[in-house]
Design a protein around this nucleic acid. Sequence first.
DNA 1: CTGTTAGCGCGTTCAC
DNA 2: GTGAACGCGCTAACAG
Lengths: 346, 346
Amino acid sequence: MVTIYDIAKKANVSAMTVSRVINKSDKISVKTREKVEAIIKELNYLPNSSARSLVSKKTKILSLMITDIANPFFTSVARGAEDKAMQMGYQLMLCNSDENLEKESKYIDMLISAGTDGVLIAPANDSSKKNIQTLTKYNIPFVLLDRHIKDLKCDQVLSDNETTTRRLLEHLIKQGHKRIAIINGPLDVATARERHQAYCDTLTAHGLEINSNLIHQSHFLQDSDISKIIKKMLDLPENERPTAIFATSNFIGVDTVKFLIKYNMKVPEDIAVVCYDGLPNYTESELFITAAEQPSYHFGYMGMQMLIERIENTAPEMPRKIVLPAEIHIRKSSLHEIDKNNEAPR
Amino acid sequence: MVTIYDIAKKANVSAMTVSRVINKSDKISVKTREKVEAIIKELNYLPNSSARSLVSKKTKILSLMITDIANPFFTSVARGAEDKAMQMGYQLMLCNSDENLEKESKYIDMLISAGTDGVLIAPANDSSKKNIQTLTKYNIPFVLLDRHIKDLKCDQVLSDNETTTRRLLEHLIKQGHKRIAIINGPLDVATARERHQAYCDTLTAHGLEINSNLIHQSHFLQDSDISKIIKKMLDLPENERPTAIFATSNFIGVDTVKFLIKYNMKVPEDIAVVCYDGLPNYTESELFITAAEQPSYHFGYMGMQMLIERIENTAPEMPRKIVLPAEIHIRKSSLHEIDKNNEAPR
DNA sequence: CTGTTAGCGCGTTCAC
DNA sequence: GTGAACGCGCTAACAG
């Protein structure tokens, strides 16, 4: 391994001078700088980050903690985060918590041990607060991604859950739907809770009843057990069955449609579906599900930007909150005027 | 920051004893071990990886270099790689080269500087050899992923390009197709080259002519300019037009179908399509494109496993080569007996 | 402008 | 079983 001493010896200068050249100190004569730089190139010298970090307490490593890289939302977040990190001269450490607190905790410990400069984190759920406070104990800056945590003062980049949910539901209401179900993630996750609240508020505001038979929780991972939930709702008497379903995540939305069809329901004729968050259009066909498309790349990109600004002390003292709007794309899964006569009296 | 000295002082032992406890040395009395362990827990001590690395020359950081995390193939690879790394107590550094040699080179330098213990790498192209040799110069183990590089002795986990290509084409040939086009990635990428070779070999073996008007190269990123290529082929006289197209990657396949439809061609009636590598089925509908589905998760998982075995010296001296088979899924895009009379004489 | 000294936190080496 | 001294590669602080 080549060290600054090897360079120093060959250049007839001290190690300190080499260090100064590497760190672009300006108090170096042009002649020695050029001499040293030439030898650095010749010997293919690359600084040892461990040694540097030991002194500087900085690693130039940032971390991204997400709950599932297989979810296209987070894939795109990762892409954005990585682009920004790279651009600013940082490396990115990737961590998948699988919505699991213990895994998250283990990762946090590893990240602290590795000396990460900062963490962009989508917490598994509200109890992640404890894991995040471990970061605080070590003075490691972090930015909350997608999922808010109560009473945690920090930078965050979030989705506009209230507005987006309301707009999706009002689209359904405008189509004549009165019995709208929600299939949600666990309520100890902020996004699920906020979407739940907005769901209740919007129905109430439009004079619609909130029926607990139409409110269901699953989870956000890919194999969420939607089948049972659908079955349960289809078993309701016809005049209590939902005529529309609000799915609060991409995977939930896809599975909802899948199982509706499996149980011989027509979408949107029998039951309409709208979905919070979209999926990439890989297929040749038109997209089918009405979805609130999120700017996922920017979640990662802007989250990283805030994190780096925080680390490099170019950010204002005050915590910043970025709320990214979603774009509602109305598609076939919700485009069907329901038959008003079919509506049973309440 | 808590150090072993803080622990030592509180436990009335030397730092060395603490170090031995942490590293699970057996030459420690049970009593002191327990005392030290209690204080470690109490003080939330986490070892400083930089200091450790400086001494041990190991970081417990592995790296994954891929060309695009937005490509579902690599997303899944990343998932597999991360799972294995985590399981074995390593952290994963993620790098996107964007099929770009310079970006790849810059990343390699960063990784060396960061002291990565090993790299699982899908090289951008044949010229990546130089970047990879930099790793060798620093004695950093690596495993080639997906893309072979000539005369590079190393562990590799690859796709069975020859067999898979042949089976896809023979399926088309069996359907009666005689003019089969190929839309490929750049030929300085091993997978593209091998699929090209297998394409030529298979056609020849079946007595079909190899027509340069039906051989096209684009690239593997998402916005590959397939439109022009399709247009060019549709501009051929009817009796020279392809009746089927072999797309050598998932994104190419999707775009091929998309633009065929855009130019008013019916798939598969006018032109059939088969594709090397699949895409996740997010939609409610049946998948459409006939595809060779690759076990992408295992590319990552097994690649990491080989890498770790190499690092921990539990691997045989000899380089290992794992070839993972793809599963051919025949779907609608290629299920149409072509009209034999429509075949022009040659 | 350049060099010397000391120390970052830990593990290796060699004593006891 | 335990401890003291040294050095990993680098940079901050000071000296010249």
